[in-house]
Amino acid sequence: MATWTYLGFQDSASPLMEQLIFFHDHIMVVLIMIITFVGYMMASILTNSFINRYMLEHQTIELIWTALPAVILVFIALPSLRLLYLLDEVNNPSVTLKTVGHQWYWSYEYSDFLDAEFDSYMTPTNELESSGFRLLDVDNRTVLPMNTQIRVVITAADVIHSWTVPALGVKADAIPGRLNQSSFMMSRPGLFYGQCSEICGANHSFMPIVVESVNTNSFLNWISSYSD
């Protein structure tokens, strides 16, 4: 999870988040090259005293500074599109998790085999254990098996919310009357924290998300404890 003063990405817990980080790094390489080049050009133009009274146009240089940015953009666009379509893929999911945004909590439903249905509220600070994370921990965690393709179906019951877990590379709007699908695979066990990402009213900041990644057995144990 993100801790104090940490400004980078969280450590990824899913292959897609890794891809997102790779893409980010790729873009940064391009960006820094451009910034360096433009910065150098600006500095050198400002600090010399060359004058050319007769130059009104120069087709060659115009061609270069039109075509070259286009080529650079292609090198950004192609990996971007690849990633976009990778994120859209659902890859034969084994478990479907239904998540419904409410003012102001998330509720979860597992209906593939045994029925599990529960609300997940933020733990208030005064009830928090000393090991807990303020404004991030919840009373009921979303337990899911790792190394398993999971489909999340996201919707809302009142206003628009957004279900987000940065370490898993998942973010999708929860819209009343619409089911948004997203999918991920957790590559390691752990607790992955997220927060509602669409301003949804007074307590928008107080409806966090906690995904608990466990092995298949623990998941089966957990879910059977939920069935009647």
């Binding site: 859209d88 659902v90 890859n91 034969n92 999911p93 084994s94 478990v95 479907t96 593939d112 085999f113 098996p145 190394n147 398993t148 489909r151 179906v153 999708a172 009357g177 619409r178 089911l179 948004n180 699908q181 997203s182 092995n215 298949t216 057995n217 089966l220």
Partner: peptide, 28 residues
Amino acid sequence: VPTMSEAIMSSQMETAPFDPRFPNQNQT
């Protein structure tokens, strides 16, 4: 320890498959 796929095989625990009629994010 059964893997998830084994669990699926033995208990018919399977979820709704991908349906090409609804290839988009919107699954309503």
